[in-house]
Write a protein that binds this DNA or RNA. Structure first.
Length: 730
DNA sequence: ATTCTGAGCCAC
DNA sequence: AAACGTGGCTCAGAAT
């Protein structure tokens, strides 16, 4: 498969120019079908389009499908080929469905009788571990409902599908019969294996059933086994890892089909196969993961229980102050309008073209602005290009202000209010624990349904956070890990200078800057006015550069100096931290040798195959890949190990919330956990939060630190000490 | 109308 | 041997 694709791509790349010229010369009458195919396949086609085009070509070659006579006199186009794919897919779909039903395995069982279902649950409860899946009316876990449940009972090798009432078939059981499954789903001692468990947990929750005994999620486990996998859909993984091909729901039933409308004989084969595949994938995955005992242990004790925590966090959701959002949004709109008319007044004379200048189009703005200031701009990057020109040209200052405002209202203030859930009246985001290659959470989109865009909680700007408020009678408590990544790298590298700073409870940047400049600690920590000193700032930038693998050129820009000076600074900085320096080099050498790096305690891997590449002289492309992989090595270890700390701490925090009345986990933003707590929480409660933050996961001997903030509006907090002091004085 | 991509920018 | 690691969302523009 891969080889075929490569050959075609190579051919396409080399032949493109000649082909384009040929295509222009040729008329519709002279281009043969074969030539048309070469031309179409040489286009920049998306991966799905490419697959469709090849399917059509093959079907045409085999005489299974032909051109519509109505368009036979026109030049054969990609559009026509794709239209033919729809016809082909429809032809094949009917054949496939008939074949599926005819070949229903004997051990796939449709359950349409309550007594049989009851007996099935008794049988299932004898199993130590089963596979579970739900079919639903749609993908919104707050408004859609279950239409069927699949179960795989491995010891007897049977796979069941139980359709419920929304299903358009009289044989489906009444939805009340879902209750018969409760004792099984809620039974802690029957392990459950699912693919994308968060989804099914939420669906069962819709029906008041709490899934217990979660043992494995084949989707998240796959991320741990290979974070570079192109797709984590069950139907994409199965052929690769368990050699079992099957069609996706859309392929079989069409894009907009509803599972409730699928005939039961087909639904059985499709749904029972889901848990069957899930089970087989689980067997494969657990065998492989067990070969790496630390990873296996990490998966079972952190990533699996974390799914329950996330499902609960997501379902809790957020409360937004809509009045504030409306008022603030209008204020921003007025400001943007005023700025826009000023910008247009200046820039329109420099704009070429019939239409009115669109300020939001960089393609139009760049030439107009360049002419207006009499300087050719390379791009419109706010930080690198525009900001340095801000004081020289008023128009640029106004443009920056305009961009900032329209970004804020266009992405956050105006958009978020539209995403309220109609059923719960709250705002629910998604937290994907395997959303990043390092192990951090991603937030916003659904991994299995990327078309449906949610909202990202983790990149809300400070001004947008003001929309998020604590529910009535509650406060939001934010607890961060103080200098999490620096403590992490201190532990991983064993860097004495850093570890000592933390043991002495000193600010690491100030401590480093003090050594570096030979000045007293207090002098470089804070200025008389309480601001950060230049020495501390510089050291902070330098340390982050070390972790991120920043080049001397970028660092020079950040420190407002020359690349040589920046390099000299880094050299001197590393000289004061020899263990850190050595650790970075060792990590890069390890990556180059093995093609991966370990997170803390071998609990997780970051696979960097490019680090093993060898670049010949002048091969810049390969060199760039190697350089990138080299930067990713140390950074991945730090970011990934830090995320392990955050995840372990989240589980302990969740357990703490379970013990406290009215407490829930509200969110997480990488190095920070947020709680929802009763407004009359006690100092002991605050102490418990701090204990959870600092004691749940240790980076060796490096102590953890945490700052707590109390707020009713996200981002507008007071330190917990001040909260209680204010309370006292009232 | 729908889908995709790149530039740009928000967070840590 | 030039460009900072991990994400997600919006907009414009292009392609179909």
């Amino acid at each position: 498969m891969t080889e075929l694709k490569l050959t075609l791509n190579v051919k396409a790349a080399g032949a493109t120019d000649a082909l384009q010229a040929a295509a222009v010369r040729k008329t519709a009458a002279t281009e043969t079908l074969e030539d048309a195919w070469i031309r179409i396949l040489a286009m920049k086609n998306s991966e799905p389009d490419n697959a469709k085009l090849h399917a059509v070509k093959q079907a045409m070659d085999n005489g299974k499908i032909g051109r519509d006579p109505a368009s036979a006199n026109k030049r054969f186009s990609k559009a026509e080929a794709l239209r033919m794919y729809s016809v082909l897919a429809e032809q094949q779909r009917e054949g496939k469905l008939a074949e599926l039903v005819a070949n229903t395995p004997d051990n796939y069982v449709l359950v349409t009788d309550e007594t049989v279902l009851y007996e099935l649950t008794l049988l299932a409860m004898k199993e130590p571990i089963i596979a579970v899946d739900t079919e639903t009316t749609g993908l919104d876990v707050y408004s859609d409902v279950i239409v069927g449940v699949s179960l795989t009972l491995p010891t007897i090798d049977r796979h069941y599908y139980i359709p419920f009432e929304p299903t358009h078939d009289a044989r489906a059981l009444p939805i009340e019969a879902l209750e018969l499954l409760r004792p099984l789903i809620e039974n802690e001692s029957v392990g459950k294996v699912l693919h994308n468990a968060i989804y099914d947990i939420a669906m069962f929750r819709r029906h008041g059933i709490t899934l217990k005994g979660l043992a494995w999620d084949t989707m998240t486990a796959m991320h741990l086994l290979n974070e570079n996998e192109p797709s984590y859909k069950l139907k994409d993984l199965a052929p690769v890892y368990i050699g079992s091909e099957s069609d996706t729901f859309a392929e079989l039933f069409g894009k907009d089909a509803k599972f409730a409308e699928v005939p039961l004989d087909i639904a059985l084969v499709y749904a029972a196969k889901d848990t069957h595949l899930t089970w087989d994938l689980y067997v494969f995955q657990s065998q492989h993961l067990k070969k790496m005992p630390e990873m296996y242990e990490y998966y079972c004790t952190v990533e699996v229980p974390l799914l329950i925590v996330i499902a609960d966090l997501e379902s809790n959701g957020y409360v937004l102050d809509l009045d504030f959002a409306k008022e603030y949004g209008e204020k921003l709109r007025r400001q943007a309008e005023a700025l826009l008319s000023e910008l247009l007044a200046v820039l329109t004379p420099f704009h070429e073209g019939e239409e009115q200048l669109n300020i939001n189009s960089n393609q139009q703005l760049k030439p107009a602005l360049s002419k207006a200031i009499g300087k050719e701009l390379p791009n419109l990057d706010a930080k690198k290009t525009l900001k340095p020109l801000k004081s020289e040209f008023e128009i640029i200052a106004k443009l920056l202000e305009y961009k900032k405002i329209t970004k804020l209202s266009g992405t956050y203030i105006d958009k978020l209010p539209l995403k309220q859930n109609a059923v719960t009246k709250r705002w629910h985001s998604r937290f994907n624990p395997m959303g990043t290659v390092t192990g951090r959470f991603s937030s916003g989109k659904d991994e299995e349904d990327k078309s449906e865009q949610g909202f990202n909680v983790q990149n809300q700007p400070k001004d947008a956070r003001k929309m998020f408020v604590a529910p009535p009678g509650k406060v939001i408590i934010g607890a961060d890990f103080k200098a999490q990544e620096i403590r992490c790298v201190a532990h991983l590298s064993g860097e004495k200078v850093l570890i000592d700073a933390f043991l002495n409870e000193r600010d690491p940047y100030a401590s480093l800057a003090s050594d570096f400049h030979g000045k007293p600690y207090e002098e470089v920590y804070k200025t008389a006015e309480g601001d950060d000193t230049v020495e501390r700032k510089e050291m902070k930038v330098g340390m982050l550069a070390a972790i991120y693998g920043t080049s001397k050129y970028t660092l020079a820009e950040q420190l407002n100096t020359t690349p040589n000076e920046a390099q000299a600074f880094l050299d001197r900085m590393f000289k004061t931290m020899p263990q850190l320096d050595g650790w970075i080099k060792e990590t890069q050498e390890f990556a180059a040798k093995y093609g991966f790096v370990w997170m803390d305690g071998k609990q997780r891997k970051r696979r960097l195959p490019d680090a093993k590449l060898k670049a010949k002289w002048g091969d810049k492309d390969t060199w760039r890949k190697i350089s990138r992989a080299k930067r990713q090595g140390p950074n991945g270890r730090v970011q990934g190990s830090s995320s392990i700390q955050t995840k372990v701490t989240m589980i302990r925090a969740y357990e703490m919330c379970q013990r406290k009345e009215g407490w829930r986990l509200w969110g997480t933003v990488h190095d920070e956990l947020l709680f929802e707590a009763p407004i009359d929480f006690t100092e002991q409660d605050a102490q418990d939060v701090e204990d959870v933050m600092t004691n749940s996961y240790k980076f060796g001997d490096v102590p953890n630190g945490s700052d707590l903030e109390v707020m009713t509006i996200w981002g507008k907090g007071v330190p917990v000490s001040k909260w209680f002091a204010d309370k006292e004085s009232k």
